[in-house]
């Protein structure tokens, strides 16, 4: 760890050191430990199932990054995921429940996701509500709507849905396609003016306003984007569970915020990037894996996981400060 750090420093310079550097280092260490504890770690099947487990949090964390870079926060992502899940399965069922109705369900789910995100953005950037409390409130509303649409878990999706999600496309696992697509999206966004505008809004509100950035609209877009990614995550979870569940995704909000911070994005806004959040989400997943394979007694797992996450946060902050 120490070596890689000092070796990379002169090459990239302390100013240009990417924010995701620390998370990536931790991730490599954890992968090595996991490989040692579970020699089959690099088998195709194991990687495939791990990625399937980690993917929803990765997607939510990407969306959450944009909101946090703009200096806001979104606690409603888990509720958005639940609402999108029940809307998707209900629309598929209403459209006939056959393979042909799946795309209709997917589109309906994503439309709802963007609308939820835009609603958050509207309240926060145009009506100027405090983001944390406002998204807690909208989260309650989205969950309520999910319970109204589907009071109990159930309503199976057509086989083609979960078989495609769990299977391969052109010989490559679908989940890997989705991860690569997420990565490419993040890299494209890095070069778009939107991301620098967002960082300006998050880092220096008065300055951003004076330089003529349409702040309210930029923040609105970041929330809509966050909603969209919560929607993608919900569609992935639906592919995993193959049915609807109005209480799905409750840990996504806090998990995504931890992933974003572990990935080097500052909660105060203006600094960071979604690449780090992908590593942060993978890191959280790997911590769980390592603890599972270390053979700890069950009742110690939550405690040790909490301690490691705290240590990783502290370590990340300490290393990044130097």
């Amino acid at each position: 760890m120490k070596n890689t750090l000092s070796a990379a420093k002169p090459a990239s310079g302390s100013l240009k050191k990417p924010a995701w550097f620390v998370a990536f280092g931790f991730l490599v260490v954890l992968i090595l430990i996991n490989w040692y504890l579970q020699p089959s770690f690099f088998d195709g099947m194991v990687l495939h199932s791990n990625l399937t487990t980690f993917l929803p949090l990765i997607l939510v964390a990407i969306g959450q990054t944009f909101v946090i870079m703009g200096g806001d926060i979104d606690l409603s992502v888990g509720s958005i995921a639940a609402l999108v899940n029940v809307v998707t399965v209900s629309v598929i069922a209403m459209a006939g429940g056959d393979s042909a109705s799946v795309p209709i369900g997917l589109v309906a789910g994503l439309v709802v996701a963007v609308l939820c995100g835009a609603f958050n953005g509207l309240l926060i950037s145009y009506l100027r509500l405090q983001p944390m409390v406002a998204t807690f409130g909208t989260g309650i509303i989205f969950s309520a709507l999910a319970l109204w649409i589907l009071p109990q878990a159930g309503l199976a999706v057509p086989d083609v849905y979960w078989m495609t999600y769990g299977g391969t496309i052109l010989g490559v696992p679908t989940v890997l396609w989705i991860l690569v697509a997420g990565f490419v999206f993040v890299l494209i966004m890095k070069r778009r003016p939107f991301e620098s505008h967002l960082k300006a809004v998050g880092g220096n509100r008065a300055g951003a306003f004076q330089s003529g950035i349409d702040m309210s609209f930029t923040r609105l877009l970041s929330f809509a984007l966050c909603g969209l990614f919560a929607g993608f995550a919900a569609l992935c979870l639906t592919g995993e569970t193959a049915s609807g569940d109005p209480l799905l995704g409750q840990s996504l909000a806090m998990g995504s915020i931890s992933a974003v911070v572990l990935g080097g994005t500052m909660l105060s806004g203006g600094v960071g990037g979604a690449v780090g959040s992908i590593f942060g989400a993978l890191l959280l997943g790997m911590i769980g894996n390592v603890i599972f394979f270390a053979g700890l007694p069950f009742e110690y797992q939550t405690l040790v996981q909490g301690l490691i996450v705290l240590a990783a946060l502290a370590g990340g902050v300490l290393v990044a400060r130097k």
């Binding site: 409130g137 909208t138 309650i140 509303i141 309520a144 109204w148």
Partner: peptide, 9 residues
């Protein structure tokens, strides 16, 4: 829950 969330906002 719907009314609770709405009142909060």
């Amino acid at each position: 829950q719907l009314i609770f969330g709405g009142t909060l906002l």
